[in-house]
């Protein structure tokens, strides 16, 4: 069982587009970013299994087995 972590923009540097991680019961988004060496203040948007919200809140979300995260640094446009 694993999870997919989708990375975007400069988060891909040295990590790649998608990182596969082993799933462990109870693991949170915070555990994932710790593993990747990304800190909370660097994150502008965080999606856990299709759900988005305030970054601080989402970091406490548990990841589903075979689930995914999408992690974004500050980006914008229009």
């Amino acid at each position: 069982m694993s999870i997919n972590v989708k990375l975007f923009a400069n988060f891909r540097e040295g990590r790649g587009k998608v990182v596969q991680m082993d799933y462990t019961p109870g693991m949170t988004a915070q555990d994932v970013i710790d593993h990747l060496g990304i800190t909370a203040p660097e994150i502008a948007a965080l999606i856990v299994d299709g759900v988005d919200g305030k970054v601080d809140t989402m970091l406490t979300a548990e990841v589903k087995k075979d689930g995914y995260l999408a992690i974004f640094p500050p980006v914008a446009g229009g």
């Binding site: 989708k6 923009a9 400069n10 502008a44 999606i47 500050p74 980006v75 914008a76 446009g77």
Partner: peptide
């Protein structure tokens, strides 16, 4: 600023494709 000093200069407005899509 992370957007105006980072994301936009580096990737342009096209950087929105993935974040809009993922939502």
């Amino acid at each position: 600023n992370g957007v105006t000093g980072g994301g936009l200069p580096t990737y342009g407005t096209a950087v929105l494709v993935n974040i809009i899509n993922e939502h």
